[in-house]
Design a protein around this nucleic acid. Structure first.
Length: 463
RNA sequence: GGCGCCUUGGCGGAGUGGCUACGCAGCGGCCUGCAAAGCCGUUUACACCGGUUCGACUCCGGUAGGCGCCUCCA
């Protein structure tokens, strides 16, 4: 078990995970008012893979990624669509599951919905009211920011500087412009609501995550994550609510991923530069999308565009080519058993790969090890120190969600293709190059690329 | 204005006080009937100006440019 360290947003330090206990990870998922874009996919991929890596190291990881399915934006979007907010949220939640499912990374351990956590939400708000951290006003309930000393400790903002923020309509119901809503009374035109001690209404934006995180992972838990755009106010408010209510820490480590940018701008609906995850998957496929998302360190911004995606695809192709020539031993059949023991260089590469992930989940540095191993084996295929590279590489890639690159081509060549290949071999033996090239073109038309090697020609699916 | 952060070669993107990141693309070569795959080589990389240091892309200060957030109902 490696010592795993994660950069904590609050302290700025690298903090070490406690190997003695369950590592609870809560990542803020999407608000389902539209299909998610590629930027929304980043935290899903990062936290899913982090949990996977931790398990492989022997940690007891539990990952929860919520769905916020009640929110102002959902009401607005539903009206535009002419359907109920419940219908819209249901539809978009299903789309979210489908889109992220296509990434091929499995599901988080739990994926709570806000609308299914109303009980705990109401209880949490009630506790805050009882403790004097919140107050009812005209059917709304607000959190009293000044009642919580630690406010601002995550985003490092002094509360004095926030007082400017007035000018919102609900301000009249607040005692202090800094306060934020925990519960909102049902308004005209809203088509869903829940009963509460303060009358019918719905949760505010931040409280649902406090309630769901506690319900799923207890409090405190280890890692709370999400996009860096959630640091303030969302996560700051979560801390205020949860810690004021329970009198103990919400999460030990705050882990935030950087934004995906197009032309140096954050991808967001208001800017009109969104690229939906489903579109990216349609065009490039899951392996390319995953490879792209891990191509930069999770905390840094990541440039989006055709170039980066195509580069990710090309890199994958190099790995796939290697794995075709050096198939992993594992599996069942054939197995050729020649890869029993991994050579020392191979083991070292695998170790460095995992070290990189353990060091603040540095996926690009990890991939360097994968590519270095590939080159070394291509240089010195017979070196015993490099034995078992295919198996080791497949294991590495599995950790970062690219295990499918090792899956041998779906189906082998069919009879027709094999017959053509044979014909080409004959033509080549006769040095009838024109005929051989003609057949090669025919094979290309069938989706096969011919690669002549020392041990004969081979067919590889065209990419 | 406030808080946080960024600026690396054609592109993406790591990293370190002195040693090739890596990937993609380009160019040259090897291999090959040709091609593909692969291998080798290659194009003055670290925004700018000072400072610290034997030595800075890496530390400190400043300048320029850029990004995120600044309380939901943009």
């Amino acid at each position: 078990m490696r010592e795993v360290r994660i950069r904590d947003t609050m302290s700025g330090d690298l903090l070490t995970l406690d190997s003695e206990r369950e590592v609870g990870i809560y990542a803020c998922g999407p608000t389902v008012y539209s299909r998610i874009h590629i930027g929304n996919a980043r935290p899903f991929v990062i936290f899913t893979l982090l949990a996977r890596f931790l398990r492989s190291e022997g940690y007891q990881a539990k990952l929860a990624i919520n769905v916020t399915d009640v929110n102002d934006k959902i009401y607005t979007a539903a009206v535009e669509r002419g359907i109920t907010s419940t219908e819209l949220a249901g539809e978009m939640t299903a789309a979210y599951f489908e889109d992220t499912g296509r990434l091929g990374l499995g599901r988080p351990d739990s994926e709570p919905l806000a609308t299914e956590t109303i009980g705990p939400i109401v209880d949490l708000i009630a506790t805050l009211v009882e403790e004097g951290h919140a107050y009812e006003s005209g059917g709304d309930v607000y959190f009293s920011v000044r009642s919580f000393d630690g406010y601002g400790k995550l985003s490092h903002r002094p509360t004095e500087d926030m007082e400017q923020g007035e000018g919102d309509d609900a301000g009249s119901l607040k005692r202090d412009p800094l306060d934020f809503a925990l519960w909102k009374a049902k308004k005209e035109g809203e088509d869903s609501s829940w009963d509460s001690p303060w009358g019918p209404g719905r949760p505010g934006w931040h409280i649902e995550c406090s309630a769901m995180a506690e319900a799923e992972l207890g409090q405190p838990f280890t890692i709370h994550g999400g996009g860096s755009d959630l640091v303030f106010p969302h996560h700051e408010n979560e801390i205020a609510q949860s810690e004021a209510a329970r009198g103990r820490q919400l999460a030990r480590i705050w882990m935030h991923n950087g934004m995906i940018e197009t032309g140096a701008e954050k991808m967001s609906k208001s800017v009109g530069n969104i690229f939906q995850l489903s579109e990216a998957l349609d065009v490039y496929g899951p392996e390319t999308v995953v490879a792209y998302l891990i191509s930069g360190h999770y905390r840094q911004p990541l440039a989006f565009g055709e170039g980066p995606l195509e580069q990710a695809a090309a890199g994958n192709e190099r790995l796939r080519n290697f794995l075709r020539e050096n198939p992993p031993a594992g599996g069942n059949e054939s197995g050729s058993g020649q890869e029993a023991a991994a050579g020392e260089e191979v083991r070292a590469a695998g170790s460095r790969f995992r070290d990189a992930l353990a060091d603040d989940f540095n996926t690009p540095r990890a991939m360097r090890e994968a590519f270095d191993l590939v080159r070394a084996v291509n240089q010195r295929p017979e070196d015993p120190a490099l034995a078992g590279a295919g198996t080791e590489l497949a294991g590495m890639l599995e950790l970062v969600g690219l295990g499918s690159l090792a899956a041998g081509g779906d189906d082998g060549p069919d009879a027709a293709a094999l017959k053509l290949l044979e014909a080409r071999n004959t033509a080549r033996a006769d040095k009838d190059w024109a005929r051989a090239d003609e057949i090669r073109d025919q094979l290309a038309g069938l989706g096969w690329e011919v690669r002549d090697g020392a041990d004969g020609a081979r067919l590889v699916p065209r990419s």
